[in-house]
Structure formats: structure tokens, C-alpha cells
Amino acid sequence: MSALHIKKGSTKHSAYNLRPQFSDVQETHTLALVVDNEAGVLARVIGLFSGRGYNIDSLTVAEIDHAGHRSRITIVTTGTPQVIEQIKAQLGRIVPVHSVNDLTVEGRSVERELALLKVEGTGDKRVEAMRLADIFRANVVDSTLESFVFEITGTPEKIDAFAELMSPLGLSEIARTGVAALSRGSVG
């Protein structure tokens, strides 16, 4: 099992980094979409990003209202303010998209991501991994004599930091869910 190398300080893992970087400042925004849960809706959203050369940093999707056939898609994307505005307008044009909310500009929000990390090792490294997991409030969800699988939730930055620490301690696999986010306070 080869070790995973996670570059120090890396937080973005863009799937679609096609666009040349403009001099304008790049911003990261979290967008929340409510869509009809119908065949192809995710392909429409992803196709929009790949077809027009926008970035997807992370994307999560799941049904939220079974009776109403609604799903919620949370997308973290990066671009200049003009590009972010375009992305929102383009998403709004997709027929089965009911709403597009930019959680980054619409007041404060909470963001959480879940990750599973497999750390392989014995002896001191194993003990150290366990100790750090404790500090990060990561749970052990599987264990063998040579490995742990940790479960951790938190902001993407917290998971980045945890993964970075685990890397020299035998991190061999990582699975991340991508961000789920909600605005704070009542919907109003």
C-alpha cells in the first residue's frame, strides 16, 4: 500500500481547472442548489461546469425530500467575482433547478465535511496517530493490528490539517464527502 502524499498547505482539489487564471482576485464560494430529483440533473450541473470551464472544488448531492422529489446540491467553486456571478446565473437557467443560494455572500453559514482516513503503521507511529485523532475528535471506526480507519467531521480546513498530520504516520487512503452547508439562523 503506497502512502498518500498530500502537499503541505494544499486545500483545493479542483476537478476542472481549465480556465486560465485572470488577474482578478479568485474567491471561493459555497453554493446551495435545490433541484428536482430527476434523471440527469446532476449531469446538467456538472456539464455546465465542464462545458464552460468553471472550477468545482467539491460537490455533494443527496435527496432531501423524498415525497417532493427534491435534492440538494452543495458546490464549492472558485473564480473571479464575475465568474461566480456567471456560474450562479447559468445554474439558475437549468430548468430543474429551483433555487441557487450563495452561502458565502448571504450571511454566515456552517460548513461540514466528513472524511474516512486509513492509517497504517505499528509501534510509535500507531500511538501517535491515535493521540492526534483524539485531539481532532476523530473516531476510530475500524481497526486491525496494523491499521485504523478514522472518521472525522469538520470544516474542509480541519480535515486538510488532520490529513496532513496523518500523512507521515502511514496515511494510505482517504475518502471525503465534500462539503454540506447551511445558512445560520432561521430561514426567515
Binding site: 464575475q82 456571478e85 456567471q86 446565473a89 447559468q90 439558475g92 437557467r93
Partner: peptide, 8 residues
């Protein structure tokens, strides 16, 4: 009529 045309 198309918001995505504006400021594109």
C-alpha cells in the same frame, strides 16, 4: 430576459 446574459 436571461440573467446570465447580463455582465457575462
Amino acid at each position: 430576459i436571461d440573467p446570465s446574459s447580463i455582465n457575462k
